[in-house]
Every structure is written in structure tokens, then in C-alpha cells.
Write a protein that binds this DNA or RNA. Structure first.
Lengths: 346, 346
DNA sequence: TTGAAAGCGCTAACAT
DNA sequence: ATGTTAGCGCTTTCAA
């Protein structure tokens, strides 16, 4: 039973020490993983601690040990539902390892990211995970200088010397292209994300490679910047003009693919996949919802998170560790939004 | 220009002091908001700081000032898209005020929440925001005892003495009922969320009040526990059995309403809203997507966040401040998933 | 206004 | 194994 501490605000290790009849450092040792204390003292200390409701102060510990148990997470937006999912999983995985996530929202502007990284560093974080954001080499230098490891999540465009975990976007884009071509599509269009994002660049290059391998060229291209409204406008534009519209659209991510589907089916009154096939990228939860039933390239969120956490902890525990760059495969999840080629395997 | 600091790990106020030719405390004063320093010293210090790339250590500052500038956020899940939205806005709003959000994922079990709250307290947070989670009175006592204010976000079932920001769920539920009744529906069913959630309870009570006022009773009721799969099963169950199925369903939140729509339109082949009207609660982004076009009660996320931040900062700055409980109105957002009563106003 | 000195709560040598 | 001591980097009296 925790004792009644009416007016007490903080219980310190010193108070516990007094109650247990030991020195303050003995208390510290009992609560420090790698320390040594006799079973007898440990018991006395634990009892006293329980009675007083004592718990070590993480911040004080951080001051002297240099470990804050805090991981800074930089993220630009949470409206692409790939990120909430990632955040939840990341937070859970780190929590299980004794770390916690301090969230920093950043706009894509360089200035904003600059300022945000400085703020993160102010908190003496043990590491930084940058999701959906690119870090200039200047910034990663700054972190390196501060001894804070950085892992890029779902981006690869950090400077050299920075770890990253992402998907093999090129291969994913290529697979989308092959699938559409095998499905008999001839007029394949692409809706791009934010042009500077490594994900966007890889996916488009993969698609173009597949098209090229079959002697095809892109039938149309629009830019959605990973935003729904812009993706809608881009989709409309694909069907305007004199020539025939596309018979298939590969969209750089699911979030924009939903917008594309809404335009194609709703505004244009076309049938999916009979008139137009649509493929997205990410496999966020709504892609599986019946109203969208989106064929897409799955990003293996669980594995990405595992890798990110592994790399991060390795970098923290082994200061000299080489940065690692991981690219995971992206299986095609076949649903109803794209025509299925006869005899398609894997 | 920041000086080249090749092997330097940390720049301390002492180093800045030496370079500026002043005392360490002078440096501290320059970087402490309410402190006094002559313009001359301030300038010298700022220059030295800039040259060295110095920034105050938030943790060290926290140790002595008792302010960590960290707000702990407890959240149970991020798959209901109301929460990522809230998290993003909360984080932005707090960031603008010099605070940052430390995320703690918690399962709904009492033990888990207990443990999580202790962990939060370990970080010496300045306040705790509990979103989508209820706190036992024991726990809120623990926080109160530790001098850490708590604000419940989208829940009202904390113990007395805890601030909360939520919607007027009863009124929202009532409004949904009135709208459906005015639309000529006679067989109105309800799909409940997690039975213990204050949101769930309020919304259902409101609906029942509206029905009662018109001499109607609930035509059916299922429990979805705020989860899609369970909501689907509950929806199917509503249409099984001998009697006629419902002609309208009020679902406790949008997340489950999407599942209900998928079942009603997809599996059962019914038309919405011709055969069945569906109303949700929250107005999360996908509710506005064309494929769902869900009529729903809007939770004013922006205002909720503003209020939460205001209350939190007030509690932090004024230790004796009375807890506040805010309930915001929930306007009905009329879209296409529910029949619109002729001449419906507001 | 400014510097010197005393801690905040804790860990990590260093002795014993 | 345990107590003593010295800080971690900073804010805040207290004198000057």
C-alpha cells in the first residue's frame, strides 16, 4: 500500500534512503539496471520506495547519464493515414523498450525543419526519427555533431551517413506498371506526389521503367502533391482535352488514390475497374474498406517500425555504429479497383 | 555563422559565458524570459551563443525550474481518425506555446493505464492530456498529488476535480434522432460504442430521448465497441431475424458508420439513403469523401483543442485554478447518407 | 545589473 | 557491497 502523502509533492531517493536506513546511492543502485546491491538492501529499499510511492526522476537521471529515454519524432502531417498507423506502432514499440516519443510537427519548409530540429535537440533526445520529412545534410550534420542518431522513416533523401527505413519504391512502381500492362491497359497515367519526396521519385521511376520495358509511354501525368484536393484536380485534368482519357491510373499514394476514385466514379461517372483501373500505394486501412476496395502496393508498416526501432537502438547503444539503409519489398494487394490480368501470379 | 565545432558535443552556458566575458549566470539571465540583463551584456552573450551554437538545455532547466515544457498525452488508439487529427492540432497548438507532446499509448485496461500514468509522471511532465481514455479517481488523485494537472479530451468520466473538454454528446444524439424522425423514419436502430465510454453513453441517451419524445422506441441495438469489425457484425445482426430491419441507423461514431455503410450497401445491397439512412458522429475527414458522404454530427476539433490548451496552460500557470469542464455543441453536417426531411432547418 | 554560491535529483567513480 | 563525493547544466537567491 502506498502511504498517504498528503502534502508531499515529490519523493526523492534521499527520502527513500532515510526510510530504508541506507545511503542515497544505495537507492540509486537498486533502481539502476546494471548496478549491484545485496538482496537485503534491495528489499529494504524497494519496500521504502513502495511505501513512499517513489519513482526515479527520468530527467535527473538523464542529466547525469546522458540518456533521456526520449526519441524525437518529426512528422509533417497526419492526414495521410499511413503516419498515424506508423506513429502508433512506433510509439508502442519504443515504449516496450523503455523509450517514449516526443512529437514535433513540421511544415516542409526548410526553415521550419531547421527550427524544429533545434527544438528537438534542446530536449536532449536520444535519437530522432524523421517521418515524411527530408533532412538537409546540414541538419543531419548538426545532429551528428550533437551525438544524436537520426533515422529517416519512409524517406531516403537524407544526406549520406544517415540511416533510413523505407520501401523499395522503384520496385513497387514497377510492379504496379507490370500489373496494369498485363491487365491490358494501354493508356496508363500517373498522379505524382510531392515532387521532391524520395517516395514519389522512386514510384514514378519504377512505373516508367515498366512502361518502357513494354514500349509504352506515360499517357498522362498530373501532380497531386500528396494532397486530396490537388489530386482531384489532377485527375479531372487527365480526362479533359480532345484525346481519350487514361484507362488506368497509378497514384503515388492511397490518400490521393481515394480522391482519384471519387472523381473517376463520382464526378465522371466512369466504372472502376471496367472503364478505368486505379492503383494506389501504402495500403492504409481505408484502402480495404468496401467503398474503395483499392488495389495497392502495401508498405509493410510493422516491419518498417521494427527496423526503425532496431536501428535506432543500435545507434544509441553503439555510438560508432554504421548507419543502415533498409528498403523493404512492397507486395501488391489485389482488390477490386484494378482489372486483374488473367493468370496473374504474384 | 555558427563556428566550426569539430569534436564538441555540448555547448554549455559556461562556455558561452567565458567567450562573452561574463558570468555563467549572466548567460542564464539572457536566455530566461523574465530575467534582467543590460542590453550590452545581452548582446555580448547572444553573439557568443550564436558563434558557439549554444541553446539552453531544456532538461537542466526543468530540473531547477520544475517546468519540463512537456505535456504527456495518453491515447488508446489512432485508428479512429478523430484522434490523429486531434493529436496533430494539439501538438501544433502546444508547440506554438513552447510545449511539446510526449506520447503514451495505453490499452483500455485499468492496469495498463495505471502503469502508463506512472511512466508519464516519471518524465516530470507539466500536464497530462488523456484522450479517448478514462482515468480512475485514484489516478487523478495521484496526478493531483504530484501537482500535475489533467485534462480529459473527448471524455468526461474522470473523477470530480478533473478538467475535461468534450462535446455535448447528449444533444448531438438527440439531434440525430430528431433529424431521422423528421425524415419519416420509424424503425431507428443504434450501434453503440464501447459501453463504458462517456461519449457512447451520452450519444445513446440523446437518441433515446428524441425517440421517447415522439413516442418511439429503439428498433434495434448492437454494440460495435468503436471497432469496425464488431460494428459490421452488429449491423448484420440488425437485419437478421424475422421482422423488418431498421430504416435508419445512428452509429456512435463515424469510424463504425463506415463499417455499417459497407455492410448495408455492399453486403446487403440496400440503397442509402433510400432504403436505410445512416448517421455517424465526429465528422472525421473520410466522412466527407464522396464514397461515404456521411451525414454526421461534427465534433469541433479545433475548438476542442483550443479549449484543452487554454485550460491546460491555465492549470499549469495557476496552481490553485478550478478545474473546468467544457461541452461544445455538435452541428449536424448534412450529407447524402441520410434522407433529408422536407423543410428541415438548422 | 551582475557575480558567487547553492542546489534541482540523480548516477558514477572512488574509497572503504 | 556500500557510503562519500563530485558533478550533469541550469535557475535563483544573495550580496555587492
Amino acid at each position: 500500500m502506498a502511504m498517504r502523502r498528503d502534502a508531499s509533492e515529490k519523493v526523492t531517493s534521499l527520502q527513500v534512503a532515510k526510510r530504508a536506513g541506507v545511503s542515497q546511492s544505495a537507492v540509486s543502485r537498486v533502481f539502476t539496471p546494471g548496478a549491484s546491491a545485496s538482496p537485503a538492501t534491495a528489499e529494504k529499499v524497494r519496500n521504502a520506495a513502495r511505501e513512499l510511492g517513489y519513482r526515479p526522476n527520468v530527467l535527473a537521471r538523464a542529466m547525469v547519464s546522458g540518456r533521456s529515454q526520449i526519441i524525437g519524432l518529426v512528422v509533417a502531417y497526419l492526414d495521410n493515414y499511413f503516419y498515424p498507423e506508423a506513429l502508433e506502432k512506433l510509439s508502442n514499440a519504443l515504449q516496450a523498450r523503455g523509450y517514449h516519443v516526443l512529437v514535433f510537427m513540421a511544415r516542409q519548409t526548410a526553415e521550419c525543419i531547421d527550427e524544429v530540429v533545434e527544438e528537438i535537440l534542446d530536449y536532449q533526445v536520444d535519437g530522432i526519427i524523421a517521418a515524411s520529412v527530408a533532412l538537409s545534410s546540414q541538419l543531419s550534420d548538426r545532429c551528428h555533431e550533437a551525438g544524436v542518431p537520426v533515422v529517416l522513416f519512409n524517406r531516403t533523401d537524407g544526406a549520406e551517413g544517415v540511416s533510413s527505413v523505407a520501401s523499395d519504391n522503384f520496385e513497387g512502381g514497377r510492379l504496379a506498371g507490370e500489373f496494369l500492362i498485363a491487365g491490358g491497359h494501354q493508356r496508363i497515367a500517373y498522379i505524382a506526389g510531392w515532387e521532391k519526396a524520395s517516395t514519389q521519385v522512386g514510384r514514378e521511376a519504377g512505373l516508367r521503367a515498366a512502361l518502357g520495358a513494354h514500349g509504352l509511354a506515360l499517357h498522362g501525368r498530373g501532380v497531386g502533391n500528396f494532397r486530396m484536393e490537388e489530386a482531384k484536380a489532377a485527375t479531372r485534368a487527365l480526362f479533359e482535352g480532345p484525346g481519350p482519357g487514361p484507362d488506368a491510373i497509378f497514384v503515388a499514394n492511397d490518400h490521393m488514390a481515394f480522391a482519384a476514385l471519387d472523381v473517376v466514379r463520382g464526378e465522371l461517372g466512369l466504372r472502376v475497374p471496367e472503364d478505368v483501373s486505379v492503383i494506389g500505394f501504402d495500403d492504409v486501412p481505408p484502402a480495404a474498406w468496401a467503398a474503395y476496395d483499392l488495389t495497392t502496393l502495401r508498405q509493410r508498416a510493422n516491419r518498417m517500425v521494427e527496423q526503425t526501432v532496431d536501428i535506432m537502438l543500435e545507434q544509441i547503444d553503439t555510438p560508432g555504429a554504421q548507419p543502415r539503409n533498409v528498403a523493404l519489398d512492397t507486395p501488391l494487394v489485389i482488390r477490386g479497383s484494378a482489372r486483374i490480368p488473367k493468370g496473374w501470379t504474384s
